[in-house]
Design a protein around this nucleic acid. Structure first.
Ligand SMILES: [Mn+2]
Ligand SMILES: [Mn+2]
Ligand SMILES: [Zn+2]
Ligand SMILES: [Zn+2]
Lengths: 154, 154
DNA sequence: CCCTACCTTAGACAGTGTCTAAGTCAACAG
DNA sequence: CTGTTGACTTAGACACTGTCTAAGGTAGGG
């Protein structure tokens, strides 16, 4: 993943300081940041970077397949740097934590031809939902205060 | 589904004119409208209904499990009146059309215990993506003008 | 028919994402 | 190394989706 910059150069991208810091933020932990979280972290490295540039750069990275867009809640899209290893997501309904998971069978195989209605089906996104161990413990201790998803963490 | 009003009465809901027209719009075709689409259709029946009431009513219907929320794109949530028959969705990347589909196996079964990280997994949402027959034909005829998803239709 | 707790309303506000016009600069040619 | 140029970046306005509040209205029980 660290040769992302090399791949971008190969695509004749102009390597600006702004694009470098966005790539650097994505290269950190394999988490699932929102665009504005990425902007905040990028701005820590290059204070004058604008929100528009972060959105533009993310949009381009998604278009060329270097980053995936993930919409697990109805809120901000999250950007997934783990684009080169197919996986799905497991989300906590209470705290919003997101984990990468790897189903045992290709989820595309579960859709019979009769259920495809002539579509050319090429991708599938699976979001498993439930409670993470921490939130399950907390809600066992205090049966109220449930289902108020805080901001997602990972 | 037409006894939705009876079920609401059983829950001691106050049956206002506003809630009736929202239920009536949802009872129509089994499509996947956004809140604002539902508001527009409800307003055709009851012109003074407010946006806030439609949002409130939909939120309550979701909370009691009479309607499902579906987020297939990063845009507006869609509301699915087909809440009593488990199903998944098939979405056209180009025109946004949404169809109900029924996988041959329970998608929850595809996630091994080792991939659950202690979560209590209770639900799963699967979104199959590709091109509908119309859009596939159109993009074969005109290989440009791809991947510019118009507003979703169903 | 009256009460009152619950519901609805208009409009302000917040979060997320897009767009534009003007300025800037990375990359390349010379 | 330097000049040129088209791609890139910027601030801020704008659009869309959803939430909230305070004030007024009304369904349904008595
Ligand atoms: Mn991921
Ligand atoms: Mn559906
Ligand atoms: Zn949690
Ligand atoms: Zn289509």
């Amino acid at each position: 993943m660290s040769d992302l910059l090399a791949r971008l150069r190969a695509r004749r991208w102009r390597l600006t300081a702004q694009r470098r810091v966005v790539a650097q933020v994505l290269d950190g932990d394999h988490v699932h940041f929102t665009a504005d979280e990425i902007h905040a972290r990028a701005a820590a490295l290059l204070p004058e970077i604008s929100r528009a540039t972060v959105y533009n750069t993310l949009g381009e990275l998604v278009a060329i397949g270097e980053v995936l867009e993930v919409s697990t809640d109805g809120r901000a899209k999250r950007y997934d740097p783990n684009a080169h290893h197919a996986h799905q997501h497991l989300v906590c309904d209470s705290c919003g934590t997101i984990r990468d998971v790897h189903p045992s069978v290709d989820p595309l195989a579960g859709l019979p031809a009769a259920e495809r209605y002539g579509f050319t089906v090429s991708r599938v996104a699976v979001t498993y939902r439930g409670l993470c161990p921490d939130c399950a413990a907390r809600s066992a201790a205090d049966p109220a205060a449930d289902s108020a998803p805080a901001r997602a963490k990972a």
